[in-house]
Design a protein around this nucleic acid. Structure first.
Lengths: 209, 209
DNA sequence: CAAAACTAAACAAACGTTTAATTAAATCAA
DNA sequence: TTGATTTAATTAAACGTTTGTTTAGTTTTG
C-alpha cells in the first residue's frame, strides 16, 4: 500500500496522539489539527478513525519486525555476540518508533479480535521465532545452558524496555535527572539499557545454578 | 477515607472497565450499569469521573505498596532468600489486583501532572527504596556482586511481570495453551514466572563477568 | 422531620461521520 | 497549446449520538 504525504501526516499525528492519550482519548479533530488537514480528510482517506488505526498498524507493522537475517547468518559471530546485536537492534527499533510502540502496548491490553490483534500476533510470532533460533544455536554450540524458556526471555527483553520507555518521567524524577535535556536523556538511557540487558542476558544464558 | 458498599462497587466496576477499555474508552454509564447503580450516583459520591479515578488510586495505592518489613528484618534468611520472597510477594500483589495494575500501566503513559502521577511516583519511590535496601544488604554480606543498577533491576521485575500480564492472550496463542481454563492458566503462569524470575535474579545478582 | 440516598429527565458540549458544494489536478480531443 | 471535461482533493457546515454532569423531585433513613 502506498500513501501520499497527507495520509502519512495524518498517521504520524495520530500515532503521537494515540501514544499519549490513547485511542478513545484522541478525537479525530485533534488528529486533523495536529496533522494540519481538514477534519473530513480522515474519513475521506481512511474511512473511519478505527480504520485509520488499522492502516497505521499495517504501515508500521513491517518496521517493527526484527531484521536479524544478516546477524543470524554471520558465522564470524559467537551466539553471545549475536544476542548482543539483537539487543541493540531491538532497542534501536523501539526507540526509533516509541510512539507506535506505546500504541501497541495499549492495544495489547484491550481484548479485541480483528486485524490489529492479528498484526500483533504475527509480529510477536516472527520475533519470537527469530530469537528462538538464536538461543538454540547457542545451546547447540554449548555456549548457552539448557532449559531456557524463550517466551519468558522475550518478555524480559520486551518488558524491561517497555517499562523504561513508558515510565521515563518517573525514572527521571526518582533518579534526579530532571535537568537533563530530552535528547541527552534518551541517549543516556539507551546506552544504559543496552549495557544492562547485555550483561543480564549473558548472565541468564550462561549462568549455571 | 471510608467507603460504603455502593462506593466500592462503583470503584470495582470502574477498575475492571478502565483496565480493559481505558479511561476515555469507558463511559460513566458503562460504570453505573456494571456496578448496578444509578448513573447520577457517580457524580454524587465522587464528584466526577476524573475524581472517581483519583479515589481509586487512593483506595488501591496502599495495597500496591510492597510489604517487606518482616522479610527485611528476618535475620534467618539469606539476602537471596529475601529476594525470592520479594519476587513472590510482588507477583502475588500484581496478580491479585491485575485490573488496577493495568490501569496504572496505562496511566503511566499519559503525560499528566496531578494527584495520580503523584501517587504513582510515591509508590515507585517506596518500592524502589525497599528493593534497594535488600540489594545493598546482599552486597554488604558479599552475596551479591557490586555495581548493580537497582532502578534497572526494578524495571526488569516490573516489566517482565507486566509484559506477561498484558499479553496473556498472545502468550496463550503462541504457545498452544488456548484450551487451558482461565484459572488453571493463571496458576500455571504465576508458577512459571516465579521460578523464572528467581533464577534470573540469582543469575544477575551473583554472576561475575 | 431533617438529612442522606436515590432517581429519571434534561443539559450543553463533544464526538465520529456524512453531505453538498467548491477548488485543484489530471485527461484528452482538437 | 488550448479549452473542455472528468476525476480527485478539499472544505465548511450539518447530522445524529454519545458524552459527563446537573437538576429537580422522590424515597429512605436516623
Amino acid at each position: 500500500m502506498e500513501y501520499n504525504d497527507k495520509q502519512i501526516a495524518i498517521m504520524d499525528a495520530a500515532e503521537k496522539l494515540f501514544a499519549d492519550n490513547g485511542f478513545s482519548g484522541t478525537s479525530v479533530r485533534d488528529i486533523a489539527e495536529a496533522a494540519g488537514v481538514n477534519l473530513a480528510m480522515i474519513s475521506y482517506y481512511f474511512g473511519s478513525k478505527e480504520k485509520l488505526m488499522e492502516a497505521m498498524f499495517r504501515y508500521r507493522g513491517d518496521f517493527m519486525r526484527l531484521k536479524l537475517e544478516s546477524i543470524l547468518l554471520n558465522s564470524n559471530l559467537t551466539p553471545l555476540q549475536k544476542v548482543d546485536k539483537l539487543i541493540d537492534e531491538y532497542i534501536e527499533r523501539i526507540f526509533n518508533k516509541q510512539c507506535f510502540h506505546k500504541v501497541m502496548l495499549r492495544e495489547q491490553m484491550v481484548d479485541n479480535t480483528g486485524p490489529i490483534a492479528e498484526q500483533i500476533t504475527q509480529l510477536k510470532a516472527t520475533n519470537q521465532a527469530l530469537f528462538k533460533q538464536l538461543i538454540h544455536e547457542g545451546q547447540r554450540k554449548g555456549d548457552f545452558k539448557k532449559g531456557l524458556d524463550v517466551p519468558f526471555l522475550m518478555m524480559t527483553l520486551v518488558g524491561t524496555t517497555s517499562q523504561l520507555l513508558t515510565s521515563q518521567k518517573y525514572y527521571r524524577a526518582l533518579n534526579n535527572l530532571q535537568e537533563m535535556k530530552n535528547e541527552e536523556f534518551e541517549k543516556h538511557i539507551k546506552k544504559k539499557l543496552s549495557a544492562y540487558l547485555k550483561n543480564l542476558f549473558k548472565a541468564i544464558l550462561t549462568y549455571e545454578a
